[in-house]
Simulated assay, not measured.
Amino acid sequence: MPTTPPKRLDSSALDATCPAHAADDHPRVPKQKIGVLLANLGTPDGTDYWSMRRYLSEFLSDKRVIDYPAWKWQPILQGIILSIRPQKSGKAYASIWNNEANESPLATITKDQTAALSTKLNAAYGGKVMVDYCMRYGNPSTKSKVRKMVEQGCTKILFFPLYPQYAGATIATANDAFFRALMDESWQPAARTVAPYFDDAQYIDALAQSVEQAYAKTADKPDILVCSYHGLPERYLLENGDPYHCQCHKTTRLLKERLGWDNSQIITTFQSKFGPEDWLQPYTVEEVARQAQAGNKKIAVIAPAFSADCIETLEEINEEIRESFEHAGGTQFTYVPCLNDTPAHIDALARIIDDNLRGWI
Rank of each mutant, 00 (worst) to 15 (best):
S11Q: 02
A13V: 13
A13I: 05
L14I: 12
D15V: 01
A22L: 10
H26D: 08
I34D: 01
L37S: 05
L37F: 07
A39R: 05
G46K: 01
Y49D: 12
S51G: 09
S51Q: 14
R53E: 13
L60F: 04
S61L: 06
V65D: 00
I66R: 11
D67S: 14
W71T: 03
Q74N: 14
Q74Y: 14
Q74S: 11
Q74D: 10
P75H: 10
G79V: 01
I80Q: 08
L82W: 08
L82R: 06
I84C: 06
I84W: 12
P86Y: 08
Y93Q: 08
A94K: 12
S95W: 10
S95H: 12
I96N: 03
N98K: 05
N102G: 09
S104L: 00
S104D: 06
I109L: 13
A115M: 12
L117D: 07
N122K: 11
N122I: 02
Y125S: 06
G126W: 02
N139L: 14
P140S: 06
P140Q: 00
T142M: 15
K145A: 07
R147G: 04
T155E: 15
K156M: 09
I157M: 00
I157R: 02
Y163P: 02
G168E: 15
T170N: 00
A174L: 01
F178V: 01
F179V: 14
A181E: 09
S186L: 02
A191D: 04
V194H: 08
P196Q: 03
P196D: 05
P196F: 09
D200C: 01
Y203V: 11
A208K: 11
S210K: 11
Q213N: 15
K217C: 10
T218V: 12
L225V: 06
C227V: 03
P233S: 01
E234A: 11
E234F: 00
R235Q: 12
R235A: 13
Y236I: 00
N240Y: 05
N240K: 15
P243Y: 03
P243T: 04
Q247F: 03
H249S: 00
L254P: 04
L254K: 07
K256H: 03
W261K: 09
N263L: 10
N263K: 14
Q265H: 14
I266M: 04
T268K: 01
T268R: 00
T269V: 09
Q271I: 08
P276M: 00
L280F: 06
Y283M: 11
Y283P: 03
V285G: 00
E287R: 14
N296K: 15
K297I: 05
I299W: 09
A300M: 10
A305G: 15
F306C: 10
S307A: 15
A308V: 14
E312T: 05
E316P: 04
I321A: 04
F325G: 06
Y335M: 15
N340D: 11
D341P: 02
A344I: 00
D347K: 00
D347E: 15
D347R: 00
I352K: 08
G359S: 05
I361E: 12
